[in-house]
């Protein structure tokens, strides 16, 4: 559904050093002319890709998933020789964008970049118009963004152990904020309550921004969100950081312990991202996409930016379609009982 965009094409042809503004404009004009000359022809696997590829991100532009997608898309464009254009199709907790890709033509020109929500939506949405496990072909996993548990500045506990006993003691007096039903912070909160076997009062917000605002302002007590959203606040001392939810510590926050280290069991969660094509996409096309993805995951620029986000690309063996498929199935199974126990559905 995408038309070659001259400016985006220009952005990709510029690989290495930063050119001057005027030179960019000249290149841009040339690229615009070149884009006009690209003929329209039906797609075949041998010549794939011969026109721009749309990468649907089922969330608003500017969010952490969008950032991951754009970094990957920029690198994949170089490998594929065609622009990978990010299109944000937000809404309904990511299911609108995913549904659009599920119904798209399986020609490899429409792909999806989704996060952990792809697995949880299978349970959260009882009336999903597509099947998460059968309506997509997995291309590969991209990255695991760790989550951090943070509290307001003057919350009494300072360590994970103290936090655990504080939550168990105060139960529903502790106010946990999240970014809305189905968001990563909502999932993390459910898992935390399930791991501690202690309820808290959950207050949903429309997105991380307002929730973070209320946490920094001391209106709510606790939150758990992707390190992308929390690192800046943690480093500035505006919030109290307790720990990370991954098995290993995070490079950008080396002093922050993991929950596993402190003896909290069954509380491991990362916002993993994966790429998908519609069911029926030919294996050759998937292989080309997977290859471009693997190259992107080794791109030094991608690695550097991922590090800024407090994450790193997945290892090459996890970036395969098979590993992705197995992981997705495991995640759907993992979250099903947790969501059903919490009794919260998104439709």
């Amino acid at each position: 559904m995408t038309h070659p965009n001259p400016r985006m094409a220009a952005a990709s042809t510029e690989a290495a050093p930063r050119p001057s503004a005027t030179r960019r404009m000249v290149v841009l004009a040339c690229a615009a002319l070149a884009a006009l000359a690209i003929p329209f022809s039906p797609a075949r696997a041998q010549t794939y890709p011969d026109r721009p590829i749309t990468m649907v991100v089922p969330f608003a532009a500017g969010g952490p998933t969008d950032t991951v997608a754009r970094l990957i898309a920029e690198s994949m464009s170089k490998t594929l020789g065609q622009q990978v254009v990010v299109e944000n199709v937000g809404g309904a907790g990511g299911t609108r964008g995913a549904g659009q890709v599920a119904k798209a033509a399986p020609d490899g020109y429409t792909i999806l970049l989704h996060h952990i929500g792809q697995a949880t939506s299978a349970t959260l949405y009882r009336k999903l118009p597509y099947n998460v496990l059968t309506d997509f072909v997995e291309i590969g996993l991209v990255t695991d963004v760790p989550m951090t548990v943070i509290g307001k500045k003057d919350l009494p506990p300072t360590t994970i152990t103290e936090l655990v006993s504080y939550v168990k003691e105060n139960k529903e007096k502790v106010i946990y904020g999240n970014a809305g039903v189905g968001s990563a912070s909502h999932l993390c909160g459910m898992l935390l309550m399930s791991a501690l076997a202690s309820p808290m009062t959950t207050v949903p917000y429309q997105g991380t921004g307002p929730a973070m605002n209320d946490l920094v302002g001391g209106q709510i007590d606790l939150m758990c969100d992707q390190s992308t959203n929390t690192t800046g606040q943690i480093k500035a001392g505006k919030v109290k950081a307790y720990g990370v939810t991954t098995p290993t510590r995070v490079k950008s926050l080396p002093d922050l312990p993991t929950f596993g280290e402190s003896g909290v069991k069954n509380f491991e969660v990362a916002v993993w991202h994966g790429a998908y094509a519609p069911k029926g996409t030919s294996p050759e096309v998937v292989a080309k996409l997977n290859n471009a993805l693997r190259v992107a995951l080794q791109d030094p620029k991608v690695i550097a930016r991922f590090a800024d986000l407090g994450t790193e690309p997945v290892s090459q063996d996890r970036a395969s379609p098979e590993a992705h498929k197995a992981f997705l199935e495991a995640e759907v199974a993992k979250w099903k009982p947790i969501i059903e126990q919490a009794g919260i559905y998104a439709d």
Binding site: R70, G232, Q233, L309
Partner: peptide, 10 residues
């Protein structure tokens, strides 16, 4: 973020 600047109070 894409530019490599982590937004925050700092």
């Amino acid at each position: 973020i894409i530019q490599g600047i982590v937004p925050g109070p700092n």
